[in-house]
Design a binder for these strands. Sequence first.
DNA 1: GCCATGTTTCCTGCTT
DNA 2: AAAGCAGGAAACATGG
Length: 276
Amino acid sequence: MVLHSGCSMSIPATVSAESQLPASWSPHYNCPDVSMVTPGYAGRLWSQDLHPQYWSKYQVWEWLQQTLDMHQIDATSIPFSNFDLEGRQLCSMTYQDFTRLAGSIGPILYQSLADLKWTGQYGSADMFTPGDIKTELDDLPCSILPFKEEPSFYSTSELFEIKTPFQPSAMMASPAPSNPRGTHLWEFIRDILLNPERNPGLIKWEDRSEGVFRFLKSEAVAQLWGKKKNNSSMTYEKLSRAMRYYYKREILERVDGRRLVYKFGRNARGWRETEK
DNA sequence: GCCATGTTTCCTGCTT
DNA sequence: AAAGCAGGAAACATGG
């Protein structure tokens, strides 16, 4: 299979978010601190000392999220599903490809990747918290969504011919993220919250600044999660058990007495309007 | 194969 | 009474 007739390459109207472009954007990053990739939990996940050519899809998404964060661009500005790509595909994309898939954000992404290709380093490692900020937005079922979206999880990656502009080199000796396997549940939830246009009343912020949110359609969310995990028998009952495990890790905090209400904890990243 | 992590599944008991 | 919530326990999937 190649292109899923038409809708694969389409960018939802919501993408044209010129307004999200920070005026301060400049085409070049300075890389004052190329030496450190923070170790520990974050570092394990954020291994961008690996050449982009060798990124997994997961790492591509990380880069995407990080780049948006660096430029303070809202995560809703681009459809992440358009970037369900391996590093190789990403590296073979042209400027126009970026513009097509990310609209006005495309040039920023293009430039960011170009810098990485040449330097092999991510700029300003201390500008943000590496690692936890990664977003994966699966395609939501058309039946639930108010608009038609790219239907295939993997189709985008097939849009591009794989070229090999970069040869393996010593710089790629870093380990892959330890346990990526796509997004974790809490990230999945977070990303629904952060993408209102993909969140047709599934989950709602109760207190945005405090990170309190509520499930409006608990079973629908569970089904979406199940779809993502290729598990058709997922239920809110089971999903909520996984959510409760997050309390101990302080990814979530308990909210007593309120059904279907959760709160992001100190170890949850990437949900704040102005992170870092 | 072993181990760790992050769920998934099932269950009992309790609360709203 | 139904739907949630709390956790324990064990199974499972993945990746290192």
